[in-house]
Nucleic acid binder design. Structure first.
Lengths: 215, 215
DNA sequence: ATAATAATGTGATTTAAATAGCATAAGGAG
DNA sequence: CTCCTTATGCTATTTAAATCACATTATTAT
């Protein structure tokens, strides 16, 4: 069946990402085929949901067999628009920025780090990753425009999160992955995805306290 | 109205966390009162949704006035069960573990770091944070049991994520915040919250590519 | 060759979440 | 003091998501 973009639930897109990371793991373990049932069990959902999620985008499975891991991964990459190379920058190169710059997993998904920005004079000009230099934030605007950078990972201290995100929006960044833990406001044209580490513990805390309560 | 735990949507709990972090920011800016409408606008949702979310847990607002920021924060902390001190450990002390150990924001929410675990001999015994030592992973089981640690943040390399998470579950950890980017399987009694940094870029990539498509 | 089995994909149905609409209350204006 | 405005919280309705039920098909067993 043919769906419009707007028919596709956002939660389906989020789940695609979960499936994808599970598939990566399966591929590393040389698994060739997987059924919706097995995938559902790994993703803590159910088989129908898995099949429905894929069905928004096409038919990727074979009856009686299930899904070819490799083909399904490629299909998800197309859907998420990560089958071609994408460039990103890291803004704020403290502990968190450093950790992200060395995090494996970006490259397999065609995200390539193109620049690092900070204001600490002692690190500017260094090249912590081969081919990627630390630049002063004043150079951000020109760099983003010249290199047509779409994505920025924001890992500055909280107190400057807002001003820096405004600079990013102004420079033409399309999507900000906000790791600062501080809520930021940017013009609507700039998308923001928030990752707040503390939120994880809050969520665990709630559900652990509620376990055992009557269902 | 009175609700059962099971009547409360999980997404409401997630949003509580979002509201809470916005409220923290408002408090820093000395805002005393906020309406559901204003809060909704900051949280990218709508006023009815905000009020409904709170209504599952009680009545926190005043008609014509809105919500007292301080009181609402305290109420959310009670709901999330973070109004009393909680202990957590970090397992895997590379770049990411280090970044997390210095991340501000845990303490305000009563999460206190009690121990760090790794296997690299050269860092074991060190005390990167005052009062918090790096221990060998072989000491994890006893430490968790003796100190009744509920939460662990997993920041090891991907290839050991599975074995280490099994150790955590066995030691009696109630909730794992999995930052490894690798999917882990643990017994049902142990809760897992996954934070995968790459997922953020995938999500942004999808929605940026779909912008402009017919709605 | 035929039957049994295991899987996908999808229209129909059910359930859950979001939204609308309204009663109510607090405060301020006249 | 009464009316108007603003905002909460709750019930009713609508919309969206999850699940059910089944037709279909590929593979294996007899």
């Amino acid at each position: 069946m043919k769906y419009n973009y707007s028919d596709i639930p956002e939660i389906t897109v989020r789940r695609l990402s979960v499936y994808f990371h599970i598939l990566k793991c399966l591929k590393d373990n040389n698994v060739e085929f997987i059924s919706s049932k097995q995938l559902a069990s790994l993703a803590h959902t159910n088989a129908v949901s898995v099949r429905k999620d894929f069905s928004y985008f096409g038919e990727f499975g074979k009856k009686h067999i299930g899904y070819n891991v490799n083909y399904l991964m490629k299909s998800i990459m197309k859907i998420l628009n990560i089958s071609k190379k994408n460039s990103y920058i890291i803004v704020g190169y403290g502990n968190l920025g450093t950790a992200i710059s060395f995090f494996p997993g970006f490259k397999d998904e065609n995200f390539f780090l193109k620049g690092i920005f900070d204001i600490k004079e002692e690190i500017i000009g260094k090249e912590p990753i081969e081919g990627v230099k630390v630049m002063h934030i004043d150079e951000l605007n020109d760099f983003v425009k010249e290199n047509r950078i779409k994505f920025a990972i924001l890992s500055t201290p909280m107190n400057v999160a807002q001003v820096v995100s405004e600079k990013l929006a102004k420079a033409g960044i399309k999507g900000i992955l906000n790791m600062t833990g501080r809520h930021i406001r940017v013009p609507e044209k700039t998308l923001v995805f928030d990752i707040n580490i503390v939120t994880g513990l809050e969520w665990l805390s709630y559900f652990i306290s509620k376990k055992g309560d009557k269902k």
